[in-house]
Amino acid sequence: MSAQEVKTEGAKLTVKDFQTPHDIRWCPGCGDYSILAQMQRVSPDLNVAKENFVWVSGIGCSSRFPYYMDTYGFHGIHGRAPAIATGVKVARPDLSVWVATGDGDLLSIGGNHFIHACRRNVDLKILLFNNRIYGLTKGQFSPTSEKGKKTKSTPYGAIDHPFNPVAVALGVDTTFIARTMDRDAKHMQLMMNRAAAHKGTALIEVYQNCNIFNDGAYEHLTEKDQKPDTTVFLEHGKPLIFGKNKDKGIRLNGFTPAVVDLSSGQFTADDCWVHDEFDKSPVRATILSHFTEMEDFPVPFGIFRQTTKNTYDGDVQQQIDDITKSQGKGDLMKLFTSANTWEVK
């Protein structure tokens, strides 16, 4: 059966179509619930037949996600979701393939598969649930845990330097990179919709709270009173302005960013760095990606960068189509006899 023949018939899809009857087994209050809810909310409108969605995951709390989406789903093994998903997508470019993964799964044990999926630009949508902790194994530090963090396996504080997933993704020229947070439903839906519309690897890093083992990790970014001063929301063509009273901006002096006061009259919005989502150069997006490590800088949310590149799955198919066209459809007997042959009588 070819996938092209498959059509969804009947009524328009709704949120309910993507809910499974199974009990959800995340801890009450977990940020994962919000991610699931937003995904179920946007899915009906992605213009994809329900049977053409495939959710692939690895291991960890986040990787239970496919069980709760009523689509085709594959709960893989630790770290390997990008590889399994690559197989699904390359074999069947007609499918819409999504990956649910966490900071331990994608960035530690699955680091290699992550960078190579991004490098190849396989048309996958990757949701990275980043809670900066190992939840399912009950509380060890993760590759995104901050230095000095005390956990079960680091009673005297973590010595590891943390990973910057956005910077890594930029380093392998990922064609769509965004960040959102569990507590901002609207923004997350927007990012999901934009990722779905992107042709190529799309990474969405979701700052997600683990209320059991790392509660409050992002409180300063998500709580109403602090959020305006600690975050900056990236919008294409708009200046980087933040603060409760929109009184702070980011200026770029050469390659050096600076937070400037817009209330003193020295600088105006016109002096600020204007975000270009489609910037051909990765330099500005890379600077943005390092705000998380710079004191007094807001944490950026939104699309860091999106570019256009041939997809791996598309090119694999294209090569097959081109060669089949030039050489003709393969004939098994011709293949058997393609070497020198001789007849024994």
Binding site: M1, V6, T8, E51, P66, Y67, G73, F74, H75, R92
Partner: peptide, 11 residues
Amino acid sequence: PGTPGLEHRIG
């Protein structure tokens, strides 16, 4: 995947 009505999860 692609078969309507047979959506299921394995792992």
